[in-house]
Design a protein around this nucleic acid. Structure first.
Length: 302
DNA sequence: GTCCAGGAGCCAT
DNA sequence: ATGGCTCATGGA
């Protein structure tokens, strides 16, 4: 990774923007940012704009890998390297997959699709909102929450205001009506309760990495509105538990129609299959299958 | 108008 | 254990 500080104090468009280039390949930025694991990225020019933690960030594919910029001084880029998981050896991940023509086809379509490593609270809150919602609507709910209850973050000169994801402490102060006004519907009480619990340190989200997968899952599922699926999303997308395998309606569709056509399999049967068939990095396989069924094979599958 | 969305919780079998 | 119902809201 090489870091450059722009020597152009009179930049016409941006002021005090810092940038860097991550040497990482392959990395399919579009597939990664659009595969339903994060909800705050939007296309802009040849790249994407979004907020990571308290930093507005712009990402763009380049020959070396990914070019990134942020409009404020940064002591280092570890926060973004971790978020993007640029140190992940994708060849090692793929080598752990079973010899499986379905999964192989998914990988062939998106050879640079990766898992992010997100902030636990933002990830937990986002997926509490995800219940029976389309991704575009999840983005809308989160957008409203950020604009109303998130702290403003530095943006380039002339750029519209951007906001951090609201903290658990801030959302804990919201009334249910205020949250419903962000179009949360029946998810409002769940988010409010989770915010109050997390703000009070029950649970302390920082302690979950020291737990085993099953223990961490139990902790998350103790929160109202957090079942097996949402817990597994947080365990995979925020904590990086490699065996967490969220099964939503799309993954269930993949498993039933492509892996078990003309056979009756119970939900627990599907979980057992997924837990053994896809190997030690099953969560990664899940992400390939999810994006594959939602893009390449969408019409045929629904 | 009808069906469905990165579900969860509750209740009746 | 399993199946059905309800919870909001808006896209397709």
């Amino acid at each position: 990774m090489s870091t450059n500080f722009p020597n152009r104090p009179s930049s016409p468009r941006l002021t005090r923007v810092e940038h860097t280039t991550f040497r990482v390949r392959p990395y399919d930025l579009a597939a990664t940012l659009n595969s339903g694991q994060a909800f705050r990225w939007r296309p802009a020019g040849a790249g994407f704009e979004g907020v990571v933690g308290r930093r507005w960030t712009r990402l763009e594919p380049c020959a070396e890998g990914i070019r990134a910029e942020t409009p404020a001084p940064v002591p280092d880029w570890d926060w973004l390297a971790t978020y993007l998981q640029v140190g992940e050896r994708l060849d090692t991940v793929l080598a752990s997959f079973p010899n499986d023509p379905i999964l192989a086809d998914a990988v062939r379509h998106f050879p640079g699709l990766r898992l992010l490593r997100q902030d636990p609270w933002e990830c937990l809150a986002s997926f509490i909102l995800s219940a029976t919602k389309q991704i575009v609507q999840i983005r809308q709910m989160i957008g409203l929450l950020c604009a109303r209850y998130g702290e403003p973050v530095p943006v380039p000169r002339g750029h519209a205001p951007e906001f951090a994801f609201p903290t658990a402490e801030r959302l804990a102060q919201c009334t249910e009506a205020e949250l419903r006004a962000c179009k949360l519907g029946f998810r409002a009480p769940s988010l409010r309760a989770a915010a109050q619990s997390v703000a009070a340190g029950r649970p302390n989200l920082a302690t979950l990495p020291s737990l085993e997968l099953e223990e961490a899952r139990e902790v998350l599922m103790a929160l109202r509105g957090v079942g097996r699926k949402i817990a597994d999303c947080v365990l995979l997308f925020a904590y990086g538990f490699p065996q967490a395998f969220p099964i939503d309606v799309w993954i269930e569709r993949v498993l039933r129609r492509l892996y078990f056509p003309r056979r009756r399999v119970t939900p627990s049967g599907l979980r057992r299959f997924a837990g053994t068939h896809f190997g030690p990095r099953a969560g990664y396989a899940q992400q390939y299958l999810f994006h594959y069924i939602r893009t390449v094979d969408r019409q045929r599958s629904r």
